[in-house]
């Protein structure tokens, strides 16, 4: 699988993603600059975390109109696989590739810590080999991660099985206390209706190396890459 990691001015998790895909999983990985007009034949586009364009106006709002994103949007509309983490998730929502929006955390604080999330379905490329309900320890680092959508959108997310991850406690219980930012119904990650665009606030790419004593993020990458093999 050939992976393209997009770099916007202000991205700061791009090299973590490159390291995960290339060094940990052996994927051919290249970086794509936000002004590029070519996805260079990549099979998967990864939008990394960070503060694209300084988070000016709203997180992801300006990145959404950068040249590369017009190609990413076209790629996604043709069924191409796009995965956004943190600021990448915010950009995907601003691009309307994913429904809803990410608001300021309910407590107004920037949150940087390990949290637990559990997969809600195995019917997606990034959760296909994960047992639903199992608590995974994955780091978060965001100030604007409170997932929000209106009631009809929430109903359609549920009806179409698009909620991929919810924040939970270490035992896998989905509680208010385990919700680190006030996200609607503890939602931490979703996919689009066609199931080729994925977004989540927690950072699985920061939890893939045994040297860092946290490898739960590997499960998402293994799911994603097993899908590529079976294609």
């Amino acid at each position: 699988m050939k992976v393209g990691v997009v770099i916007f001015p202000g991205s700061n998790c791009d090299q973590d993603a490159v390291y995960a895909f290339q060094n940990q999983f052996g994927c051919e990985t290249l970086t794509l600059w936000h002004k590029d007009n070519d996805l260079q034949g990549c099979d998967l586009i990864f939008l990394p975390g960070g503060f694209s364009y300084g988070d000016y106006l709203r997180s992801g709002a300006i990145a959404r109109f950068s040249p590369i994103m017009q190609h990413v949007i076209e790629f996604a509309s043709k069924g191409g696989v796009v995965f956004g983490v943190c600021n990448g998730f915010q950009i995907l929502c601003e691009s309307h590739l994913l429904p809803g929006a990410l608001l300021h955390n309910a407590h107004q604080k920037f949150n940087c810590k390990n949290v637990f999330i559990s997969a809600q379905t195995s019917n997606s490329a990034i959760t296909s080999t994960i047992i639903p309900g199992t608590a995974l320890k994955i780091p978060i680092a965001h100030g604007e991660g409170k997932y929000y959508c209106d009631d009809p959108t929430l109903a359609s997310l549920k009806a179409n099985d698009q909620i991929l991850f919810r924040y939970c406690d270490e035992q896998g219980n989905i509680t208010d206390e385990a919700n680190p930012n006030g996200s609607l119904e503890n939602i931490a990650g979703i996919c689009n209706e066609k199931r080729n665009v994925f977004g989540m606030m927690p950072h699985p790419e920061r939890a893939v190396d045994a040297d860092l004593y946290n490898t739960d993020g590997r499960l998402l990458f293994e799911s994603l890459l097993s899908m590529a093999v079976s294609r």
């Binding site: 106006l57 709203r58 709002a61 300006i62 109109f65 929502c93 601003e94 809803g100 929006a101 608001l103 929000y148 959508c149 209106d150």
Partner: peptide, 8 residues
């Protein structure tokens, strides 16, 4: 298109 996000 840009200045406001009508979802929020």
């Amino acid at each position: 298109k840009l200045l406001a996000n009508l979802i929020m």
